[in-house]
């Protein structure tokens, strides 16, 4: 059985390799010198990162005691975090509603199927396209970003959630139904608590995803740190772009640590030993 699985993985790898070869039409020469180009670009244009992005902007005048709070890095990151937070929470609540309609063990097929079609339709547009649509409809700014990422979150989390719901053990649902609990009561008191570990993990993953994608949708004018990255790219200030990318990386790592801490309250690992902040930082080698 184990060797058959290895065989399948090797077969899939060769299939992927052949497909890639077809895509580049056998012209592998393009890769030649790619690494040296990257190293020249990185050493000459990006390195060292320009940390002036963490200093106060020249305009408007900074009224804060600490200069950092008026910096491009702080203001852009905070806006991205706010957009990601609001859209993750709104999207999560919307996704719970639609995924409970789409789960086959909670709803009849006549309701589950249209709900799945809706989630597929919402998910089929990437958050960037949603952002462009909302920028056209309501104009530039964070509201377009919030709406774009909320819609994408509903589509993406909705699918993950209904798959988790469908994979849960059947006996708590059957007990609830036999006892006479209503659908909403079963959802709120059985399905959500039983899957709390997965749901929290998905919530934190989606928040992290939205922070990362907040940078991309900012480029089309939907607010956040992406707006500044887009501006620096236009003016070829790659060292400032690198500084902002490092900032995003740090925030993503912090969210990952938070995710571990939050999930420890509901998973079985937490029964044995609750992770301390020190332990989490040590795990990440910080």
């Amino acid at each position: 059985m184990k060797y058959r699985l290895y065989g399948i993985v090797v077969l899939l790898f060769f299939l992927a390799w052949r497909t890639l070869d077809g895509l580049v039409e056998g012209d592998w020469g393009r890769l030649e010198g790619g690494l040296s180009n990257l190293s020249v670009f990185f050493s000459e244009s990006m390195w060292p990162p320009n940390w002036s992005v963490l200093e106060a902007r020249s305009y408007p005048v900074c009224e804060q005691d600490i200069e950092f709070f008026c910096s491009v890095g702080y203001l852009g990151m905070m806006e991205t975090l706010k957009i990601a937070f609001v859209s993750t929470i709104l999207g999560f609540i919307g996704a719970i509603f639609f995924s409970s309609l789409a789960a086959r063990n909670l709803m009849p097929l006549s309701i589950a199927l249209p709900a799945r079609v809706f989630l597929s339709a919402v998910r089929s547009l990437p958050s960037l396209i949603w952002a462009i649509l909302f920028v056209i409809v309501i104009g530039f700014g964070p509201l377009s970003g919030v709406l774009a990422m909320t819609f994408y979150t509903i589509g993406y989390l909705g699918k993950l959630q209904y798959e988790v719901f469908e994979g849960m053990p059947n006996d708590p649902l059957e007990a609830g139904r036999a006892m006479g609990l209503g659908r909403s009561s079963i959802l709120l008191n059985i399905v959500i608590p039983e899957n709390s570990n997965h749901l929290l993990s998905q919530l934190m993953f989606m928040f992290e995803y939205n922070v990362r994608h907040g940078t991309v949708i900012g480029i089309v004018g939907a607010g956040g740190i992406g707006y500044y990255i887009s501006t620096y790219l236009k003016f070829l200030q790659y060292d400032k772009v690198l500084a902002l990318l490092i900032l995003i990386f740090i925030v993503v790592v912090v969210i990952d640590l938070l995710s571990m801490a939050v999930r420890s309250f509901v998973n079985e690992e937490g029964d044995v030993r609750k992770p301390t902040w020190l332990m989490l930082l040590k795990n990440f080698g910080i």
């Binding site: 053990p169 708590p172 059957e174 036999a178 608590p193 039983e194």
Partner: peptide, 14 residues
């Protein structure tokens, strides 16, 4: 109607 299934039907994480 009260029902205790064979696998008890408890919400394990609650």
């Amino acid at each position: 109607l009260g029902y205790i299934p064979q696998r008890l039907g408890l919400v394990r994480h609650a």
